[in-house]
Computed example of a mutant assay.
Amino acid sequence: MSSLKGKTAVITGGNSGIGLATAKLFAREGAEVVITGRRGQVVDDAVREIGAGAVGFPGDSADPAHHRALAGFVRERFGGADIYVANAGVITITASSDVTEAEYDQQFAINARGTFFGVQSMAPVLRDGGAIICVGSLASDKVLDGHPVYAGTKAAIGAFARSWALEFKDRGIRVNMLSPGPTDTAIVEKLGVPPEERAGFEAMMAGAIPLGRFARPEELAQAALFLASDAGSFVTGINLRVDGGMALL
């Protein structure tokens, strides 16, 4: 397949989960892929898994200096980029009454601040006619228990994306938000669900999803490919929910 042949794609948080699945698919579709992540060894492992000449650039997405350095690297190495996927994110599920300042600051720093300054830094090296995909969440529209801060960060990303869709229109750069529902990634373990309880947790969640199951990371990657490729050439400013219909309930 070659729908992204000749394109350079930068994917933050491309070392795991949806980001890794997207990086693999984009590479198979012919793109030169650059991924970021906080842990150098994990990034290196992901680069080997992606293959196809993928490049890793470790760093902290909450740090604007990391994004400026990444943009400089992409300009020097590839002459620019065509696709930017702002995917890096964290989640802590906590009721508002129990949210600590550290939890609040971490989620806003990585999810919202990281997305904003990532796009600010990458926009000058993004070629005209390119695409920006901001990974949001079902939680930005649907109230979920224990998600108030996370939902706020993702709602902010949605507001950024709508603004950027107009801000970059004269350059032909399309900006869209991709909002996953529950997805089968390592985040389930990070939420504190022990392995022996995973089946029960998934069954409970499936009951709240019209399609009756979690998404696969590869399904989110296919949606990202649509938004990044010529297949989505007349699509900008949307929030594409890939949630199995969960937002309807």
Score class of each variant (00 low, 15 high):
Leu248Ala: 14
Phe226Met: 08
Leu249Lys: 11
Thr12Asp: 01
Ala221Leu: 04
Asp184Glu: 14
Lys7Ile: 01
Ala156Arg: 07
Val55Leu: 10
Arg174Thr: 04
Gly40Trp: 03
Ala102Tyr: 06
Gly59Cys: 00
Gly237Pro: 02
Thr183Tyr: 06
Phe214Leu: 13
Glu196Phe: 03
Pro58Ala: 03
Pro124His: 10
Gln222Phe: 02
Ala46Thr: 07
Lys190Leu: 15
Ala86Phe: 00
Ile110Val: 15
Thr185Asn: 12
Glu103Trp: 08
Phe234Arg: 07
Met204Leu: 14
Phe26Met: 14
Ile157Ala: 05
Trp164Thr: 07
Leu20Tyr: 06
Gly192Met: 10
Ala46Gly: 09
Arg39Thr: 08
Asp170Val: 10
Ala31Lys: 05
Pro210Phe: 12
Val99Lys: 04
Val143Gly: 13
Thr8Lys: 13
Val85Gly: 01
Asp44Leu: 02
Gly212His: 11
Leu227Glu: 10
Lys169Glu: 03
Ala27Thr: 05
Leu227Asn: 02
Ala102Phe: 05
Glu202Tyr: 14
Tyr150Gly: 05
Pro58His: 07
Leu240Gly: 09
Val175Gln: 04
Val135Pro: 09
Pro210Tyr: 13
Tyr150Ser: 07
Pro124Phe: 06
Ser97Met: 12
Arg39Asp: 11
Ala224Ser: 11
Gln222Leu: 11
Glu101Cys: 07
Pro210Asp: 12
Ala69Glu: 15
Arg39Phe: 01
Gly30Ser: 07
Tyr104Val: 12
Gln222Val: 09
Lys24Leu: 01
His147Val: 05
Thr92Gly: 12
Ser137His: 09
Ile93Cys: 10
Leu211Ile: 13
Ser16Glu: 10
Asp98Gln: 15
His67Arg: 04
Arg75Ser: 14
Glu49Asn: 01
Phe226Glu: 10
Val74Gln: 06
Glu103Val: 12
Phe116Thr: 00
Tyr104Gln: 07
Thr92Gln: 11
Arg48Cys: 05
Gln106Pro: 00
Met1Val: 08
